[in-house]
Amino acid sequence: MKPFSASLDYVGRTVMHYVEEMGRIMTLFFSILFWMMRPPLKARNIFKQMEFVGVKSIFVVVLTGLFTGMVMTLQGYHGFRLFGAETMVGSTVALGMTRELGPVLTSLMVTARAGSAMAAELGTMRVTEQIDALYVMAANPIKHLIVPRVIASVLMVPLLTVVANFVGIAGSYFVGVNLLNINEGDFINNIYKMLELNDIYSGLVKAAFFGLVLSVVGCYKGFNTTGGAEGVGRATTQAVVISSITILVSDYFLTAIMF
């Protein structure tokens, strides 16, 4: 009976650990909201983070969007051709990109690039006592370090998503019309027929939410780092894993609510 109760104990403790962690992330989120309302916010800090999260992610997001659109077109083409509906490929890709893949892939890429960097940067600041130094100088670290990152992510991830959507559809057009010789007019008209403004907007709402998730989780993990260089590494890994999972899971629920 001993191993049984031990494993039960383990399960219980793990669940409690996650519940507790979730609570702490929510607490952090509310104090972020609180400090967001406290002027003055330094425009310069926000711009710096916008550059880091947004501008510097363009390349990787463009590549992701482009190849996703191209691959989907290639795959979809063979399926749709079976019943002579290859002109539907464009609209399928456009719907998929704007509703799901655009926001999700963009935020996963930004998580990997910027979310991890946030955790690592804040983690290093924690273990080298820079965060303590902020407290000592009567400057709140949440306001100085976390709020600009969260604001920048919430604004930039939707914008990157727009870029990914556009590039993805453009890539799909290139492969479909130029390489696979799908009729151009039908291809485009089907996109117009299927795609609606709401598809684009709901994708952007999702992207903003994912931006919030990845920045809050990244900052939370970095902010609560313990244990030196190893701790920083652990925080970074966990930030990426937790953000990615949260993004994928919450995407399901957001989709269920929105459509």
Partner: peptide, 29 residues
Amino acid sequence: RKKFGMLFQEAALFDSMTVGENVAFPLRE
């Protein structure tokens, strides 16, 4: 805390800022 100054073990300078900005930080805040 405004009455205090503190020198940390590894100095805890903000590595995203220059030396000048580091020293200016409490003044700006």
